[in-house]
Design a protein around this nucleic acid. Structure first.
Length: 572
DNA sequence: GCCGTTTTCGGCCCGACTGTTTTCAGTCG
């Protein structure tokens, strides 16, 4: 059993105990033990004695040891004997938690979705103490929706919704300021909902305007400080959106609270407790005087606890509170001076070279690369050698028009299924910025894929590997890659790895990026734009980079053109 | 179940909302 399996098992035990109606703190102890393992960077073997980690004591350590010896947990096996597995899936129903499920199981013999439905239809549920007719109706409605909707929505789908809601809020009256919080602000690649924090002196009026918005499928909840909606857009795109209304003095702490993550908030509150203080969304309360301190902005809030500003992207409850300011100074959009991966009408892009160049200049960059597909990719009108040469002639001519801007010739060259590259070295040697990438043979075994990648990495003309895992978020997993090996090779051969800024891709992940930075491999953030408007995905990529704790100096797009080309040409 | 410069017991992050109650438990974020 590896570390991931052990973490999963501990979390599974927590779920079973929850349904058993166990003490909530005992349940969370198993979750905390799982988190402690996750937080530690070592493998399970490197950790050695697990009980030396904070959050793992005698009980959970013995379970971990048993898992390592036997590959299974007798405790979990007992729980599985005792509790029908169908109950586990019921936890996914909204407003259903361990306590309610335990009661349904114990008093009505509910074992799964089907028996729960039957109990509701026979009106047995509303007879239980603590349940009622409304609860029964809600359960039936939830069962009807069960499994129809994905748990989390990919960023690419919710981004336009976030923009649309932002546009509408800007038109509302009685709003001092507002900001989008939650996992969207933290830059996660999928989100459960959108959380808007609104500063207002008239929450009733704001709530009323929100309730009259277009596209409302239903109002899920409405209180004095909060209104929760489901907005429905085309193609069955249903996005839950929460709005929290607060007075302006509480805006910073509310924003922090609802930006999360939950684990980060727990760390902050524990820290406050050590100071005899209590954090809530309304401010920081002194336990002694009961006085509440509020803050003008988040930096002031963190400063109150002697902390540097912790960017939203790293608020995941790991070690961000223990990290020194220098390591929290992450790459930002303003640092980006180039986009190094994009397409034109020469292959499968929508715009001409000139149009793409102008669009890049408008975005304030100082250089760029035109990188159309290579000849293997016929469906994308990949460039023959002859067309490649003609295109590069055009790029060079265009480049002469600008004294303050540099256009690199480039190519996104396929790494072929047989492991060879799509062009010979004597073609590649004349190209400024050669990207290599995989668009075929996704079903190959990991070592075959790695051999293909290694060929590209070891070629002195290849500057960068694009979208190194090939995944499409929520649609396909990509091809199998040994990331650690890829990073080591990238470092050794001084080949750049791409963080693809397209919200459907976003490979590398934050874990990959952390490893790359630690290993000393360089990263590029590129939009891979096929249209001008896709160039605007750059901030999405920057956010993803910040989730990977990337510093400016390790992101090659922040370098000037001379430094970049010197790095690329070093080994040629 | 875990933890301790408030230490071996008694806490464990905090508040809003809903639906059930008639003062609060459960769920959620």
């Amino acid at each position: 059993m590896n570390k991931k399996d052990i973490i999963k098992t501990l979390e599974q035990i927590a779920v079973y105990l929850e349904i058993k109606g166990e003490n909530a703190f005992r349940v969370s102890a198993y979750r905390k033990a799982a988190q402690a393992l996750e937080r530690d960077e070592g493998t399970i073997e490197e950790i050695g004695d697990p009980s030396k980690l904070k959050g793992i004591g005698k009980g959970t350590a013995s379970i971990i040891e048993e898992l390592m010896e036997k590959g299974e947990s007798s405790f979990l096996n007992e729980l599985k004997e005792e509790i029908p597995s169908g109950l586990i899936t019921l936890l996914a129903l909204p407003s259903m938690g361990g306590k309610k499920i335990a009661k349904l199981y114990q008093e009505l013999g509910v074992e799964d979705a089907a028996t729960l439905r039957k109990a509701c239809e026979e009106k047995k549920v509303q007879a239980l103490a603590g349940f009622g007719a409304k609860t029964e109706e809600k359960i039936l409605a939830a069962l009807d929706d069960f499994g129809k909707r994905p748990d989390r929505l990919p960023l690419s789908l919710v981004m336009p919704v976030a923009e649309e809601v932002t546009r509408r809020l800007n038109e509302f009256s009685d709003i001092n300021r507002f900001e989008l919080a939650g996992s969207f602000r933290r830059g996660r690649e999928t989100v459960k909902d959108l959380d808007f924090i609104i500063s207002t002196d008239k929450p009733d009026q704001v709530s009323e305007q929100i309730g009259l918005m277009d596209n409302i499928k239903q109002i899920v909840g409405q209180g004095e400080t909060k209104i929760s909606l489901e907005l429905e857009f085309e193609e069955n795109l249903i996005v839950p959106v929460d709005f929290r209304m607060v007075r302006d003095e509480a805006f910073a702490t509310t924003l922090h609270h609802f930006t999360g993550s939950k684990d980060h908030n727990v760390l902050m509150r524990q820290r406050a407790k050590e100071n005899k203080e209590k954090i809530s969304e309304y401010g920081v309360e002194s336990a002694e005087s009961g006085e509440v301190t509020t803050f003008t902005d988040e930096p002031a809030f963190f400063a109150h606890f002697g902390l540097p500003y912790i960017p939203p992207e790293v608020r995941e409850g790991y070690d961000e509170l223990e990290t020194k300011e220098a390591d929290l100074t992450l790459v930002e959009q303003g640092d980006i001076r180039s986009d190094l991966h994009m397409h034109t009408t020469w292959s499968d892009g929508a715009q001409s070279i000139r149009e793409m160049v102008e669009a890049n200049r408008e975005r304030g960059y100082t250089h760029m690369a035109i990188t159309d597909h290579s000849k293997f990719l016929r469906v994308a009108n990949g460039l023959s050698v002859e067309r490649l040469k003609r295109q590069h002639e055009e790029v060079r001519k265009l480049n002469e028009e600008f004294s303050d801007f540099t256009i690199f010739t480039g190519i996104e060259m396929d790494i072929l299924p047989d492991g060879t590259l799509d062009y010979d070295d004597d073609i590649l040697k004349d190209i400024d910025f050669v990207i290599a990438s995989i668009h075929s043979g996704f079903n190959q075994k990991e070592d075959t894929i790695m051999k293909r990648l290694e060929t590209a990495l070891r070629n002195p003309h290849v500057a960068m590997i694009a979208h190194p895992t090939g995944r499409l978020i929520g649609r396909r997993d990509g091809y199998p890659v040994d990331i650690d090996r890829l990073i080591d090779l990238a470092k050794e051969t001084e080949t750049i790895l791409e963080l693809n800024a397209n919200p459907n891709r976003l490979d590398l992940t934050s874990e990959h990026l952390k490893k790359a930075q630690e290993a000393g491999a360089k990263v590029a953030i590129n939009t891979d734009a096929h249209r001008i408007d896709m160039l605007d995905h750059m901030p999405v990529g920057v956010k993803a980079a910040r989730r990977g704790w990337l510093k400016k100096e390790n992101v090659v797009n922040t370098w000037d053109a001379e430094t970049l080309i010197a790095y690329v040409n070093k080994n040629r």
